[in-house]
């Protein structure tokens, strides 16, 4: 039997711009650390084994490098301690502080891409990364970028429509 001290590690983590010192069991996932230890509940627990994408967050592993804008991953699969010193952005970093919606959030709402909404934060996070990389994706590219996110309510039709709408909005906003 190991001692409690053996079970835990302490490390720093920046979440949505706020610095945290975390002490957690060494095998604990980033998702659990975010939700249970830091009270950051935007990322959701859908499956906890990397299949549904409801827990998607954007992580920069080298946050001091200007060119590391992070990438989106399943926070349930990442042992949190291996992200020591990293910067995590959740759904709370998308959209403005006073309730303003990002173009992607706005489109999800306008197109009816939200029903129960448990998958929505993950979809918005993944779709935002897609449009940051490619502002004019084809339908095939949208599907290729989003098949790590499951939705059980919508049948995906409105989600594809939302991403297409957001892409159009973004293109029109940047002449």
């Amino acid at each position: 039997m190991s001692s409690e001290a053996d079970e835990s590690v302490t490390f720093s983590l920046t979440v949505d711009g706020a610095a945290h010192e975390v002490t957690a069991p060494w095998s604990e996932s980033l998702l659990t650390v975010l939700r249970e230890r830091l009270g950051v509940r935007g990322p959701k627990t859908g499956c906890a084994h990397g299949r549904c994408g409801a827990c998607a967050v954007r992580v920069a592993f080298e946050p001091d490098r200007a060119d590391d804008d992070g990438h989106v991953l399943c926070s349930c699969l990442l042992p949190a301690a291996t992200a020591a010193g990293c910067s995590v952005r959740t759904i709370a970093s998308i959209g403005g502080p006073d309730g303003e919606l990002s173009d992607v959030q706005e489109a999800f709402l306008a197109e009816g891409a939200v029903q129960c909404g448990i998958c929505t934060a993950g979809f918005v996070t993944a779709a935002t990364e897609l449009l940051d990389t490619d502002p004019d994706p084809t339908r095939e590219q949208i599907e290729a970028a989003l098949y790590g996110n499951l939705c059980r309510c919508t049948g995906y039709g409105r989600i594809v429509a939302a991403v297409e709408t957001a892409a159009r909005t973004r293109r029109e906003a940047t002449p």
Partner: peptide, 12 residues
């Protein structure tokens, strides 16, 4: 629009 949609797309 869904009245709960704003909170849902913001993860709140």
């Amino acid at each position: 629009r869904r009245p709960d949609g704003q909170a849902k797309v913001r993860g709140e």
